[in-house]
């Protein structure tokens, strides 16, 4: 067991969700700006959003069971704060964006079709003003998630290329645990 690396299940969830969320952000921004592709993108958007919501719940439980490896001892407090804060924000947004989407469709009086006859029940009563508010919130939160993702990616690359402190490898390395030497101090 390597204390400086995330367990395999955490890494699997991270990279699976990274791909899904990035695809989802592009699907979302694309479908509201396209007439021809709107319908098929929306048909992907709803089931993918539900899958992300389920996975983030699984991931939160997993994180509580398997806490993240300790950050390097010499990492300055401001960077620690940024790391923890951005992770809390990412989790919050990963829950909020799909939940607001679900609530928004409920308030809009739409059937929430996932596939064929499979539908989600509404979680809010029909109300047009609430729909309008949640519709705006859905976009704003999704853009905030995209911005947070960019900051997260930039920070990961800082760890990999500039700090070279093993934090990037704790999530990005593959293969056996001891292949990636932790936290080289040079």
């Amino acid at each position: 067991m390597n204390a400086h690396r995330f367990p395999a299940v955490s890494r699997l969830l991270h990279w699976l969700m990274a791909a899904m969320i990035l695809a989802m952000l592009f699907i979302g921004i694309g479908m509201v700006a396209s007439l021809a592709d709107y319908h098929w993108l929306l048909s992907l958007h709803r089931p993918l959003g539900v899958a992300i919501l389920i996975l983030v719940a699984v991931r939160l439980v997993n994180r509580l069971i398997h806490p993240a490896p300790a950050l390097p001892a010499d990492m300055p407090p401001i960077l620690r704060l940024a790391a923890h804060g951005s992770h809390v924000l990412l989790y919050a947004l990963m829950f909020a964006v799909p939940l607001v989407g679900w609530a928004m469709l409920s308030a809009g009086g739409y059937p929430i079709v996932l596939y064929g006859a499979l539908e989600l029940p509404p979680i809010l009563p029909q109300n047009d003003m609430v729909f309008a508010w949640l519709r705006t919130a859905h976009t704003a939160l999704a853009l905030a998630l995209f911005a947070t993702f960019l900051a997260h990616l930039a920070a990961a690359l800082m760890h990999a290329l500039v700090f070279r402190d093993g934090v990037f490898q704790s999530m990005a390395s593959v293969g056996r645990a001891d292949d990636a030497p932790p936290s080289p101090r040079r």
Binding site: S34, L35, A36, D37, Y38, H39, F131, A132, W133, R135
Partner: peptide, 21 residues
């Protein structure tokens, strides 16, 4: 029919605008 997806998209925008007004 290319009009179908466009109608769906456009109705959605019209609905979103008027819902909040």
């Amino acid at each position: 029919d290319p009009l179908l997806s466009a109608r769906s998209a456009t109705y959605s925008t019209s609905f979103t605008r008027r819902a909040g007004e």
